[in-house]
């Protein structure tokens, strides 16, 4: 596994580090159990909707720190609408790539930024709290990376079925029992969906 020079630069000298006092919005994603957690703080100009300042905290590996650093760099000075377009693929590209097994780190950083923006918009009446539906689940699954190739499981067509009924999530995954990343993927799906109060139970099925 090899990191690019850009990743090492941002890892050794991360930008926008630290806790922000009185932020206009904040979000935390990930969990210590999975080995990575990112918090992003935003200061937003209410009139122009420009992100005036952004800071982050990260518990995680080198690529976790580097992706949080680059994502905050990318968001700084942008309007909320511009910053909403920043994806994990943009973050990865800006870092000259990440090893496939580390791609999920860029998802975490980009995702945290998006949640912080969304939290701001909801708090300021710019948007409604979105309704939870099957589409929400699919959007979350697009953030789950299959570590062997560094692509998300929707793009890789690993999701065979998604169902949502009365709090019950049912997902069929096309990952074989001998796959070393099967448990990682399942664990990450749970982590992404359990945060929604609408989700009561998650059942993930694999081919027998």
């Amino acid at each position: 596994m090899q990191y690019s020079e850009k990743v090492l630069q941002h890892f050794m000298n991360p930008q926008n580090v630290g806790k922000m006092e009185h932020p206009d919005s904040t979000a935390t994603e990930g969990s210590p159990a999975c080995g990575d957690q990112v918090t992003i703080y935003l200061k937003v100009d209410e009139a122009s909707k420009v992100i005036e300042d952004v800071k982050f905290l990260s518990y995680g590996c080198a690529s976790n720190i580097a992706t949080a650093s680059i994502v905050t760099e990318m968001a700084k000075g942008k309007t909320l609408d511009e910053a909403k377009k920043i994806t994990w693929r943009d973050a990865m590209e800006a870092l000259d790539g990440l090893p496939p097994v580390k791609a999920h780190c860029s998802v975490l950083a980009a995702d945290t930024l998006q949640t912080a923006i969304s939290n701001y918009e909801i708090a300021h009446g710019l948007k409604e709290v979105p309704n939870f539906s099957k589409e929400t689940i699919i959007e979350e699954l697009k953030k789950i990376i299959y570590p062997q190739v560094g692509e998300d499981i929707i793009t890789l067509k690993m999701v065979k079925y998604v169902g949502f009924d009365n709090g019950e999530v049912l997902i069929d995954l096309n990952i074989m029992s001998f796959d070393q990343y099967r448990e990682n993927v399942a664990e990450e799906i749970r982590e992404h969906l359990e945060k929604y109060p609408e989700v009561k139970n998650i059942q993930i099925n694999f081919p027998s």
Binding site: P14, T28, T39, S58, Y59
Partner: peptide, 8 residues
């Protein structure tokens, strides 16, 4: 640790 949300 300065970077770490857990430590903070």
């Amino acid at each position: 640790r300065q970077l770490s949300p857990l430590y903070n």
